[in-house]
Write a protein that binds this DNA or RNA. Structure first.
Length: 510
RNA sequence: GGCCCUGUAGCUCAACGGCAGAGCAGUUGACUCUUAAUCAAUUGGUUGGGGGUUCGAAUCCCUCCAGGGUCACCA
């Protein structure tokens, strides 16, 4: 079914489209004659004004292009603001300048949201606003559906007050293009996101890491405890998984002789959706040969502080009402001490799942039946994570939830692993990577014994990864960081959907 | 998945058992330096879908859909 107008405004705009066609005007021409961005045009005038003692400084003719974001027809003068990505500028259109015929077309067929180009010298209106003194104006793209109307008033202190808004969260996400078109602060979030990723790359590049790309479609998934999405290659008649982590591929590259590698890309986890979980999300993982998790803590706190400095111009950020100080060094505390401190439970005193579950029940913590000991400890951490506002490395995890990490010297039930938390959110996870192929195989088998088939922790054994490790993998540390959550922190957004251009939403029947 | 909240004009919202409204946008008219322009007139609705209660439902009940919050799940 071809589209049809569904309301008055759209019907009127279809009439206007026809009006343009009737006057032999292409409402969607191929070529644009733009000579200046909006900002360049304004700069041009300001330079001319500074250089000239004349009250009405002259500039060359400029041609600017953009979307009409305000219009105001006043008899035989038409004012409009057009916006491109560099800013907005006023068009000053007099009937005397463009002729009656063109003026009629403006009056009858130009709307908010249309893209137009306008040519003329720059000028300042009597009210003082820098404007294009329009001699020629042309439709570039007719807008048929109305964008939300947001009016803006510039206050004396230079800030602007906005009237009207497009704030319905669902519609903003479903129609992100409209959200971006009318909400400049949303555009800014995604500029910050882009700068964050670039800053991460710059930092790791300067530390000597190599950026790589590894398969998203994988015959065997692994590297994390999560349910995968499955798909199928028709011609190969092969089931494939969308990756849940990069871990096992990146470590193969250390076997191959790269000493530092990183990847920024998409992970897919077939699990619940929440304010901090999207089915696909952007992960950063980096692996460093000849280093352990202490080195990775040093590197990670430097990375986050450096990226914050480059992106936000500061290493302190305001998030959700708290001021977070990202300056190294960050607090480092073992998981055992943290839980002792916060919950007054020393889980080492309860070395079996049954005894630990019993004491957790006493403390009114939720416990599911038949939960392995390591997962119980993890749930203890979950109960306190929202208290970790300032950056905190939580160190040394139970071995049975950490199949890729080396055991600590002091305690064979624990491994050299850390997660780091900022503003109550887990931001990353890291290990001193296990590089003993025989132990790695044993850990895989152990996980298979501990967890049933349905459990997310029951990952299939990746034989090829074990083969790679048997060739010899250098001692190394590895870190994974949730990039979306980092962007949330930098932009003070409390929902991951605010930092994803097109967050996953259920399909809606129209 | 459980519980709570929300869904009314293009946008933002009101009406909460008794004629479905406002501002902005739109349309018509006036205005050759406006800027949240102003002034006058005016169009626009299956109140998310379906069912029920009632003389009468946007409003109360049931159900479905979508979203948000929270809990559970989730390295």
């Amino acid at each position: 079914m071809p589209w049809e107008p569904s309301n008055n405004v759209e019907r009127d705009r279809m009439d206007k489209l026809q009006f343009l066609l009737d006057h032999n005007i292409d409402p969607y021409p191929k070529r644009v004659e733009r000579t200046h961005s909006v900002q360049q045009a304004i700069d041009l005038f300001e330079v001319a004004e500074a250089d000239s003692s004349d009250e009405e400084p002259q500039t060359e003719t400029v041609t600017v292009a953009g979307r009409i974001v305000r219009q105001n027809l006043k008899g035989k003068v038409y004012f409009a603001h057009i916006a491109d990505e560099t800013g907005r500028v006023q068009l000053f259109v007099r009937i005397n300048s463009v002729g009656e015929e063109t003026f009629e077309i403006i009056k009858d067929a130009f709307d908010m949201g249309d893209f137009v180009q306008a040519s003329g010298p720059m000028m300042r209106t009597r009210a003082g606003e820098i404007s294009v003194n329009v001699q020629e104006i042309k439709m570039l793209a007719k807008s048929l559906s109305p964008l939300p109307v947001i009016k803006e008033r510039v206050l004396e202190d230079g800030t602007s007050e906005r009237y009207g808004e497009f704030s319905d969260v669902e519609e903003r996400y479903r129609q992100r293009y409209a959200d971006l078109a009318v909400n400049p602060d949303v555009r800014e979030v995604f500029r910050t996101r882009a700068r964050t990723i670039r800053a991460i790359q710059n930092f790791l590049d300067s530390e000597g890491f190599l950026e790589v790309e590894t398969p998203i479609l994988q015959p065997i998934y692994g590297g994390a405890a999560a349910r995968p999405f499955t798909t199928h290659h028709n011609q190969l008649k092969q089931d494939l998984f969308l990756r849940i982590s990069f871990e096992l591929y990146l470590k193969r590259l250390l076997v191959g002789g790269f000493d530092g590698v990183y990847e920024i890309g998409r992970d897919f986890r077939n699990e619940g959706v929440s304010f901090k979980h999207n089915p696909e999300f952007t992960m950063l993982e980096y692996y460093w040969a000849y280093r352990d998790y202490n080195d990775m803590m040093d590197l990670t706190e430097r990375l986050v502080a450096d990226v914050a400095q480059r992106v936000m111009g500061s290493t302190t950020v305001a998030f959700n009402g708290n001021v977070v100080n990202l300056n190294p060094p960050w607090r480092r505390i073992t998981m055992r001490d943290l839980i002792k401190q916060e919950l007054e439970i020393d889980y080492m005193e309860y070395p079996t799942a049954d005894s630990l579950a019993a004491v957790m029940k006493d403390e009114r913590l939720p416990v599911k039946p038949d939960t392995p000991w390591g997962k119980l400890v993890e749930e203890l951490l979950g109960a306190v994570e929202n208290r970790l506002i300032q950056p905190t490395f939580v160190m040394d995890y139970p071995v049975d939830i950490s199949p890729f990490a080396k055991r600590t010297d002091s305690d064979p039930t624990h491994v050299e692993r850390f997660e780091f938390y900022i503003s109550g959110m887990e931001m990353g996870n890291a290990f001193t990577e296990l590089n003993n192929p025989l132990q790695q195989e044993e850990r895989f088998l152990e996980m298979g014994r501990l967890y049933s088939e349905e459990d997310d922790d029951a990952a299939p054994i990746d034989e090829d990864y074990l083969r790679a490790m048997r060739y010899g993998m250098p001692p190394c540390g590895g870190v994974g960081i949730g990039v979306d959550r980092l962007v949330m922190l930098f932009t003070d957004r409390t929902s991951i959907r605010e930092v994803l251009l097109f967050p996953h939403l259920r399909v809606k029947d129209e």
